[in-house]
């Protein structure tokens, strides 16, 4: 017998074709991932470019006044466009939604992960995810035909009766009215059911599932050792839960940001309940409009050039403010991240 041939351990056992394909696959996967990233940037840039191009005429004609005025008059010849009222509507409804949805979602997630017995946690979890799958137009119709009348006759009526005569802090006045006071101003005008509050509430319901689902997932990541550690020191259930929430704060914050993004961008459901007027009011019972809302309402029938361009300007404003809020959230996130 001749002396045994020694094959390189690297080469052994792999036929050249396999090696070739493996290399191709690697490169293909890397290429595709990079392609995806480039495409995403490309699409974002493209959207930005298209909106900027479309809005160019309005930017030239309206300029900065777009951000400082709140009249929206698209009648040909009258043409006055200001985004302020819509920006205000977006901000107020999103704020209401976050203020209500974040604590509620955390409660829900804590219930699912830390309170409910196994047989209940599963179905509740499923239900929450089901809520996320309901199309927004369904929420809108439900909001308009069920929630809004109920709000008007019950909740808002109750709130109105409770707050209308409480006058703590003077906050200026509505045109043509006496001085308004906080918190009585919040219910100025009386219950209507189609207002900022309704818009905020429908958004609350819509962003609840996503914040709950993510918070639940991050809470499940809370390490068993830390849980045991806290209990071992004599912590109560609530103290341990607080520790878990602190531990998961970055994830929960991220969930809230996602919820916020959805709230800012939501169209149909809000449009069905917010009352659709271009006015700014400190009353929660006043009708309003959001940036996304005016877009879905009027874009299709924007029938003359400056009107269409102003719509594009609204879209551009929406895009930029969404980017800015996300950026701000990112900065904040880095600050609360554990050392």
């Amino acid at each position: 017998m001749s002396e045994p041939t020694i094959r390189s351990p690297i080469a052994s056992g792999s036929n050249p074709w396999h090696r070739f394909f493996r290399g191709v696959l690697d490169r293909l996967t890397i290429g595709m991932s990079m392609g995806g990233v480039i495409m995403m940037f490309g699409i974002l840039l493209l959207i930005f470019a298209v909106l900027l191009n479309g809005a160019w005429m309005a930017i030239g004609h309206i300029g900065w006044k777009f951000f400082t005025t709140s009249t929206w008059n698209p009648v040909p010849g009258m043409d006055k466009y200001g985004v302020l009222a819509f920006a205000y509507g977006t901000a107020v409804t999103t704020l209401i939604a976050l203020l209500l949805a974040v604590p509620l979602s955390i409660g829900c997630a804590v219930f699912i992960t830390r309170i409910a017995p196994q047989w209940l946690a599963g179905p509740v979890s499923f239900l929450v995810e089901l809520l996320a799958a309901i199309p927004s137009v369904v929420y809108g119709l439900w909001g308009a035909f069920v929630m809004s009348p109920w709000l008007q006759t019950h909740f808002e009526m109750w709130m109105w009766k409770a707050l209308r005569n409480i006058k703590w802090i003077p906050v200026g006045h509505y045109p043509g009215h006496r001085t308004e006071y906080f918190p009585a101003n919040l219910v100025h005008g009386g219950p209507s059911g189609s207002d900022f509050l309704a818009g905020g509430l429908i958004l609350t319901i819509m962003i609840l599932p996503i914040i709950t689902a993510i918070t639940r997932d991050v809470l499940q990541q809370f390490p068993e050792e830390l849980e045991q550690g806290a209990y071992g020191l004599g912590a109560t259930w609530w103290q341990t839960t607080r520790l878990a929430l602190t531990y998961c704060r970055v994830g929960i914050f991220g969930a809230a940001v996602l919820g916020m993004a959805r709230a800012i961008g939501e169209t149909m459901a809000v449009v069905m309940v917010i009352g659709n007027t271009d006015r700014i009011s400190s009353s929660l019972f006043a009708g309003g409009q959001t940036m996304a809302g005016v877009f879905v309402n009027e874009f299709l029938e924007a029938d003359h050039p400056i009107y269409l361009s102003a719509m594009m300007y609204v879209a551009l404003t929406l895009l930029v403010s969404a980017l800015l809020t996300n950026l701000a959230a990112r900065v904040l996130l880095n600050r609360i991240a554990p050392a």
Binding site: V75, M78, L141, A144, M272, G275, N276, G287, N297, E301
Partner: peptide, 23 residues
Amino acid sequence: VGQSTSVNWPVGRGGKGNPGVAA
């Protein structure tokens, strides 16, 4: 106010489509 597919309404609230107004 004038005539258009959308106008600057002096009063009232807006509903989307016939169902929105009906609601």
